[in-house]
């Protein structure tokens, strides 16, 4: 079978550029060693939405209403004013938690902080950037031109634009990087009462996720809350926190760590009892479309070799066929 990737290599050489420069395909980037992120464990989530409220507060976002009464913050999806949302999966009688049939389950939706983010590759003005150390994908409204290419590109539908304002901005989770200087980490993880959302280094989170998957469902184990491990972001010292660990039963997981490989890896990882596609997490290949797109661009425009070569060819032809005014007049005189 031809994979998309193999196909790309052949296609680019054969179809687009007859004089392909042989530029190497740009591989999907990896999550930085020192990257930070979140681990969301749907089996621990009780759907209290404390994280949704905390996220709003931490980012100064207004409530959004989807009901007539407009009493509570009730967004149906993440938006430019809602960076984090707990969505509910419902099936049949909705009796059992984390069961695919006749059950219900929760799923957190927020930026995945991709290893090789489409939003960053798309943005023409570097308003979306990925930090080389923390890997946090952040947004700078002073650079942003509001083209919404990042919205179009993100495979998780995360960046959203404020269409209701003449000076609208993009809104998305930036992993609460603005709180680090106070020694505080992601608000959603900080408030989570069950540790369903954990903050930490992605390598540590991945190890924790693997540990959970290796345990016997129904057995008892210790779950951390808030922050996992002491590893800090450079220049940041986390606030002292009491030991928040607690014991609970291990859930029934689907044997898959979402984000370990999806799109080349993401810094936010997820565990679930219900297959991920059913809870709104898309099935994605193990590489990023940013790599595909940039491979095409680099093949065609790398070092401007092809454009310059083509321009040279065109100029050489045009020099012979485009008459200057003197030549045009001379020709006219001759043909008359």
């Amino acid at each position: 079978m031809v994979t998309r990737r193999d196909f790309l290599k052949g296609a680019v050489a054969a179809g687009v550029g007859s004089t392909a420069t042989g530029a190497a395909a740009r591989e999907t980037r990896k999550v930085p060693e020192t990257a930070v992120g979140l681990l969301y464990d749907a089996t621990l989530c009780v759907g209290c939405k404390a994280c949704v409220a905390a996220c709003k507060e931490a980012n100064g976002n207004p409530p959004e209403f989807s009901t007539k009464e407009q009493l509570w913050d009730t967004p149906l999806d993440t938006s430019a004013y809602t960076f984090n949302l707990i969505k509910v999966y419902q099936n049949g009688t909705m009796q059992t938690k984390d069961a695919e049939k006749d059950g219900y389950a929760f799923m957190k939706t927020s930026c995945m902080h991709c290893a090789d983010p489409s939003c960053v590759s798309a943005c023409p003005v570097s308003a979306m950037t990925k930090h080389p150390v923390t890997g946090i994908v952040s947004y700078d409204p002073d650079k942003c031109i509001g083209c919404r290419y990042c919205v179009f590109a993100c495979p998780f539908g995360i960046p959203k634009f404020q269409y209701d304002s003449p000076t609208g901005k993009i809104g998305k989770c930036e992993l609460c990087r603005h709180r680090y200087k106070e020694g505080r980490y992601s608000a959603c993880a900080e408030v989570c009462p069950t540790g369903a959302t954990l903050f930490g280094r992605t390598v540590d989170l991945l190890a924790e996720a693997k540990r959970r998957l290796s345990l016997q469902p129904g057995s008892v184990t210790t779950f951390p809350r808030g922050r996992l491990g002491e590893a800090a972001v450079p220049g940041v010292k986390w606030r002292e926190e009491p030991d928040q660990r607690y014991e609970a039963e291990v859930g029934r997981y689907v044997p898959h760590i979402y984000g370990e490989r999806e799109y080349g890896g993401t810094q936010v990882l997820k565990l679930s009892g219900v297959p991920f596609e059913k809870v709104g997490m898309p099935k994605l290949p193990p590489y990023s479309s940013a790599a595909t797109s940039e491979t095409i661009q680099h093949t065609l425009y790398g070092g401007l070799i092809m454009p310059i070569a083509v321009l040279g060819l065109l100029t050489w032809r045009a020099k012979r066929t485009v008459p200057t005014e003197e030549e045009a007049e001379k020709n006219e005189g001759e043909s008359a």
Binding site: S121, C123, P124, V125, K143, I145, G146, T167, G168
Partner: peptide, 19 residues
């Protein structure tokens, strides 16, 4: 959406040549 920033496309310090 943020047209007044459009000059950033021509600003060598902000452009993203991979875009």
């Amino acid at each position: 959406g943020r047209w007044w920033n459009v000059w950033n496309i021509f600003n060598p310090w902000t452009v993203n040549v991979h875009s």
